[in-house]
Design a protein around this nucleic acid. Structure first.
Lengths: 197, 197
DNA sequence: GTCTATACGCCGATAGAC
DNA sequence: GTCTATCGGCGTATAGAC
């Protein structure tokens, strides 16, 4: 692997582990073994390196979201996504960035984060609409809202898990959300929409 | 106000705004107007000052949670708490700390955060049990789990709002959670529990 | 308690040789 | 592309006078 790629990969790890403000160029050099000259040859500033690394972390999250987009029963896809194994104590590579003061204040660094969440929201809305159409979810629930609710459950689950140093609360949060969705099935199988085609 | 108290208050603000790692003793001095000598007279290290400030921030959050404990209809209390006006773009004073690498790694700094969430969880479980008992929530929902789910909605809502630089997603997340709770009311008014006494 | 002075290391580069 | 050397400023204190 060339130096440039190695730097980006190392910065990606450090962004996940320590965030942006608390990750120094020195730390990147030491972990990657790439020298000072190389670092500043490939990236004029720490921020430029971080931006590349952040885009990488954003891209790494998209395969997961594709659980939501896939074929098959909408509710099953929701369950698959919510129950996907995650290392709750490490937190979300992307969501973490929102709590870094230097990222929050920098529209350029924040932009990929915003885009990633916007994209996830689209996938969530789609699958939730399909769940309503399939009669798996009451049709008086707003998919746009609910999408934010479920995204928040994941992001907030990480916060709870880290606070307790225990993945339990994260699991609880996800499972509880699933329980609620199931409990919000229409009382009577909805006959306005037909599942046979 | 004496210097000591002024230092704690200033550090509390900065912890909220910038977190721990990115807040320097210098920043505290400059905002508070307290001199170098005084700072290190009252607090031997930055960490000691932060610990005091963090306890203060934790304490400041308890009045809000009391919305949940109060008298009155359980579901109404849940709504009051979820709909409480919050500055979504500023995030949670306490939850924010979980994303600071230097706090995460320091059991002493993390402890007050864990305690705060544990206490909030107790209040949530209580009000959710009461909602079940009052026939406002299906009795096959687990209050312990659901408590984590709802706490996560709030914490995660902040993340979404900051990512989009827009309080909308936070409001959506909260309102969506409330919608789900309402949709998870028992299908038929529950007659095993009597509300008249 | 508060002040000013001093210290040492890290941060985030920049310079210039190879 | 990569190396080593150098830089001004800040972070996090410590020392000692008042």
């Amino acid at each position: 692997m060339d130096s440039r790629e190695l730097l980006v990969e190392t910065m990606s790890e450090l962004l996940w582990e320590r965030g942006y403000a608390d990750t120094s160029p020195r730390a990147v050099r030491e972990r990657s073994g790439v020298g000072q000259g190389s670092l500043y040859h490939h990236f004029p500033t720490k921020r430029d390196l971080a931006l590349a690394a952040l885009e990488r972390n954003v891209a790494a999250l998209l395969p997961a979201v594709s659980d939501l987009d896939g074929p098959g029963d909408p509710m099953a896809r929701i369950e698959a996504y919510l129950m996907r194994p995650r290392d709750a104590l490490k937190g979300c590579k992307v969501g973490r960035m929102t709590q870094d003061p230097q990222v929050r204040e920098d529209p350029v660094l924040l932009a990929p984060v915003g885009r990633a969440f916007a994209q996830a929201h689209v996938s969530w809305v789609k699958v939730l609409r399909e769940a309503v159409a399939a009669g798996e979810l009451r049709d008086d629930l707003d998919p746009e809202r609910l999408a934010h609710t479920l995204m928040a459950v994941l992001q907030g689950g990480y916060v709870l898990a880290i606070a307790q140093q225990d993945p339990g609360p994260f699991q609880d949060a996800c499972t509880g959300a699933l329980d609620l969705l199931r409990a919000a099935a229409p009382a009577v199988p909805d006959d306005t929409h037909h599942t046979e085609e």
